[in-house]
């Protein structure tokens, strides 16, 4: 499936709660695949995994974070020496169900980006300990993965890990942004439907301006985000030079829209929106979890301004 169609599929499946599980794997698998398949030459370490990813027999994940903080080469402490990894990654999305992980590890100590390299680790092999972690989004698991002399195969050239990670994050940001826009749209639709059905003071609550203006503002956020995402999808599908800037814009806009719509959807629903019974909380949880998974807003805000400056300077 082309990247553009995949954006549409992610967006569409995110709008349906019943597809939550598929949606769950969709984005993470997509961006793992995307980044791996996107490499110029498929390294031998990857060759055995690709057919299994395609057939659905294997699930991959990206092990990047090590506790608090946004993506940064300095934050990578897991070491790679003599073909084995040592250290702890957390949180790792889908880590508890993944069969293998692409791991960012430290192979140098110069203080530069070139200290970081990528490795593939079979998570079912020895020296790997996986523990599920509780997180705010109950439909997307997070895990801690501890490596103790775990066997690792290099992925790509040594020292090029961070530049690949940056590209993976940009590509993932566009794909995830479509999931976020789909979620925002669905939260808006739920709020709209409830405002039409719920009667208070003798009239549908959607006829009160305080409510309808809140919904109009949700529509505005979702629309701006969708437009930024389309531009991101265009940049992704054509490998345009604008991709880094377009990806950051799509990410920020879609994160804001999903958080805004999920939050106000609960408000429109009133007390019912705060019950376990109603689905509103699932969108609220997902909106806030997905806002963090690829680096939080402050990371992307910083990236966007950097990239706009670079473009202007060029």
């Amino acid at each position: 499936m082309g990247r553009l169609r995949r954006c549409g599929a992610l967006c569409g499946s995110a709008t349906k709660l019943r597809h939550c599980l598929r949606w769950n794997f969709g984005a993470f698998r997509s961006f793992t695949e995307d980044s791996l398949v996107g490499m110029r030459d498929v390294p031998t370490s990857l060759q055995k995994w690709l057919p299994k990813i395609a057939s659905g027999d294997a699930i991959g994940t990206l092990a990047l974070f090590e506790g608090k903080g946004n993506p940064s080469p300095k934050a990578v402490k897991v070491t790679a020496n003599g073909g084995v990894l040592n250290g702890v990654k957390r949180p790792v999305a889908d880590g508890a169900i993944a069969d293998f992980a692409v791991v960012a590890a430290r192979t140098g100590s110069s203080g530069r980006e070139s200290d970081i390299s990528l490795f593939i680790v079979d998570l079912k092999a020895g020296g790997v300990e996986v523990k599920s972690l509780t997180n705010i989004d109950l439909t997307r698991g997070q895990a801690e993965i501890a490596f103790k002399d775990a066997k690792a195969e290099p992925l790509g050239a040594p020292g090029e890990g961070w530049s690949v990670i940056t590209q993976v994050l940009d590509r993932a940001a566009v794909l995830m942004a479509f999931e976020q826009v789909g979620g925002a749209d669905r939260a808006l639709e739920m709020g709209r439907d409830y405002a039409l059905d719920r009667i208070a003071f003798g009239r549908p609550i959607g006829s009160f301006q305080a409510v309808k203006h809140m919904l109009a503002d949700m529509y505005v956020s979702a629309t701006l985000a969708r437009s930024n995402c389309y531009y991101g999808a265009w940049a992704l599908s054509t490998n345009a030079g604008e991709l880094p800037e377009a990806a950051a814009a799509a990410r920020i806009s879609a994160t804001q829209a999903f958080q805004h719509c999920a939050k106000n959807n609960i408000q429109v629903h009133g007390g019912m929106g705060f019950t376990w019974e109603f689905d509103c909380h699932m969108y609220y949880r997902r909106a806030n979890a997905v806002a963090l998974g690829l680096g939080s807003l402050s990371y992307w805000e910083d990236a966007l301004i950097d990239r706009m400056r670079k473009k202007n300077a060029a």
Partner: peptide, 16 residues
Amino acid sequence: RSKLANWAVKASGLKY
């Protein structure tokens, strides 16, 4: 930068 980024995505959102 945070302020700028927030307005940047509104401006680009409107443009697109």
